[in-house]
Amino acid sequence: MQRERRRDPYPWTWEIPTAVMLATLFVIVIGIQLGRSVANLLAGAGWTWPDANAGTFPSPIGTAFWTSLPGVLTGHADAGLPSPTPDGLAGRGLVWTGLALTEIALLTATIWVGVYTYQRWGPGRMRGMATSAEAEKLLGVTRLRKVAGIVRPDLYGKHAATEPVHRAAGDATDRPGPALGQGLSPWLLDRRLTKEER
């Protein structure tokens, strides 16, 4: 299954890179407006957002959202805001700092989500592998405790001894045959028995 994944990769067509590019551009544009809003919030003017009703062409988020981008990039904290604008808007330095920090945070989150999505559902994903939740369900401690009577009936079964049996590492009294290797570890004892059986 993994050999097939390496030899027959999913073909890259124009739709996937275009979708990635458009999503990245939208995150950058949102970051510009968020950075300005964060700068105004830190300056004490409150949360500000472009006027959704102003403008000449229709847009679901408002024309001023798009037309105010050049003004915000030049450091004008009042570009595209509904009038009257609040007092105490951020200065150019604070606007540019807010833009830089917001863009860095958003692009880092976008890259992380993109890498996770690519590894989880992309053409290079691991096929046939269980998720951690599925592995826990089948092989975890909860499952082992549930089937303890089947796995170790001598300790957890219906007819288990009331007192647990304690054995030392070199105890070989319950092994069949001559008493070989007294004081040896169980691994060495198994190796010695295997050689004698040959």
Rank of each mutant, 00 (worst) to 15 (best):
L94R: 04
G88A: 11
W96C: 05
A105N: 07
T131K: 04
D51Q: 03
G98M: 04
G149Y: 03
P60I: 03
I32Q: 00
Q119A: 15
L73V: 09
A39I: 00
T67D: 02
G88W: 03
T48L: 00
D87G: 14
H159C: 04
P17Q: 05
G75W: 01
P11E: 10
A100T: 10
T56Q: 12
A90E: 03
T67A: 04
R5E: 13
V165D: 13
S68T: 02
W49C: 00
A130K: 11
G98E: 07
E196S: 06
G75K: 03
L155T: 09
A160D: 02
G149H: 07
D8L: 08
F65V: 03
P86A: 15
G31A: 13
T56Y: 08
G44K: 02
R3A: 14
T18A: 15
Y156I: 00
L107R: 02
V147R: 07
Y10N: 05
D87M: 06
D8V: 11
V115A: 02
Y156R: 05
Y156T: 03
K137A: 15
A64C: 02
R3Q: 11
D51S: 03
L144H: 05
D78Q: 14
R192M: 06
T173E: 11
P84E: 08
L180W: 15
A54C: 00
G124E: 07
R5L: 12
R120C: 03
R145H: 14
L180K: 09
G75T: 04
I111F: 12
G149R: 05
T13Y: 12
E163P: 05
M21E: 08
G31I: 00
K146C: 08
G46D: 00
I150V: 15
V27M: 12
Q182M: 11
I104N: 08
T173D: 11
R7V: 13
D174M: 07
W187R: 14
L144R: 11
R175N: 05
K195P: 00
A43K: 00
R198W: 06
A135H: 08
T110L: 15
R6H: 14
S68H: 01
I61R: 05
M21G: 08
T48E: 01
S83V: 11
H159S: 12
S59Q: 11
L139Q: 07
R167N: 05
R191V: 09
A105Y: 10
G181R: 12
A172M: 12
R125D: 01
E163D: 14
I111Q: 06
P86Y: 04
E4R: 13
M1Y: 09
P123M: 02
A135P: 01
P123G: 15
S37W: 00
Y118M: 07
L106G: 03
W66P: 00
T13P: 01
S59F: 12
A133G: 06
G124T: 09
A105H: 09
A79G: 06
T97I: 10
E134N: 09
R143T: 05
Y116V: 12
G157E: 04
E196V: 05
H166V: 15
F57R: 09
A169H: 08
A133W: 04
A64F: 01
